[in-house]
């Protein structure tokens, strides 16, 4: 079974994330970059399923700047067999439509039984990309899964939606997106880190995938303005001296909040 996991580098959210007010793009380099945690969980789901199914292969696919290569290597150290990295300056600031076209072209080229993605990325928080990819690839998709059982040829999972919990199933090939209810990823060990150095990394551009990133015949979503909101400032801080609860009650009552 061939499993493709979509991963990407994102600004570390433990630091402040900044947007460039002129370009509206994330300031890469303003904070440390890390692998998106949800992508790591997706890789963990792929690796643990692959361990149970003979002849499985896990390939990581990423679209992002060339500088992300070092961060992405971590995925190889965790156990992925190969990295396909679409790196193309022309794709900087790509909207969801263009991103979906490029990723779908790469997925087709690699070939797959299953594609696993995170439900929402830390920086974009789009959450529509999995469905877009499934539609372009012509395969079923099961989104925002909280758990999944994968066997050769079929998968079954659970998800929360519409005020309830549902069990969904599909034959492969298919695409799924997972939530952070999935287990956290394993840490790469020394052996993994050494092995990663020899694993193949394929670099691709949009043109090599047959996608014209300059084409104007499809509508694109563009940012027309970006502004920064004034940060919140701290108000009153008291230390509880036995009457903290009473003082807080007074504050709430005075402000008509209780």
């Amino acid at each position: 079974m061939k499993i493709i996991v979509l991963m990407k580098e994102v600004p570390d959210t433990y630091g402040e994330r900044t947007l460039n007010l002129e370009t509206g793009l994330a300031e890469r380099g303003a904070t440390e970059a890390v692998l998106d945690e949800i992508g790591e969980r997706a890789l963990e789901a792929a690796l643990s399923s692959a361990e149970k199914i003979d002849g499985s292969e896990v390939i990581v696919l990423s679209m992002g700047p060339a500088t992300a290569a070092a961060t992405l290597r971590r995925a190889l150290a965790m156990g992925a067999a190969k990295l396909v990295h679409i790196s193309d300056e022309k794709l900087s600031g790509a909207d969801l439509g263009l991103t979906a076209d490029v990723l779908a072209a790469a997925i087709r080229r690699i070939g797959f039984d299953l594609v696993i993605t995170g439900n929402l990325s830390t920086d974009g928080s789009g959450g529509v990309l999995p469905a877009m990819l499934a539609e372009i690839l012509g395969v079923p998709h099961a989104s925002t899964l909280n758990s999944v059982e994968i066997s050769a040829g079929r998968l079954e999972g659970t998800r929360e939606a519409n005020g309830g919990v549902m069990t969904v199933a599909t034959e492969l090939p298919a695409l799924i997106s997972i939530t952070d209810r999935f287990p956290a990823a394993r840490f790469p060990n020394f052996k993994g880190i050494m092995a990663a150095k020899k694993k193949p990394v394929e670099m691709l551009t949009a043109a090599e995938l047959g996608v014209d990133s300059d084409a104007l015949d499809n509508p694109r979503s563009i940012m027309i303005s970006v502004s920064e909101k004034p940060p919140r400032s701290a108000g009153t801080k008291i230390v509880d001296e036995g009457d903290g609860g009473k003082k807080l009650a007074e504050f709430l009552v005075q402000n008509r909040l209780a």
């Binding site: 909207d95 439509g97 529509v128 999995p130 469905a131 877009m132 990819l133 989104s143 979503s221």
Partner: peptide, 15 residues
């Protein structure tokens, strides 16, 4: 989001 994604990809609409 699932419906939006499928519909937008199918009709090539901006999302």
């Amino acid at each position: 989001r699932d419906v939006a994604g499928r519909f937008a990809a199918r009709t090539r609409s901006a999302v």
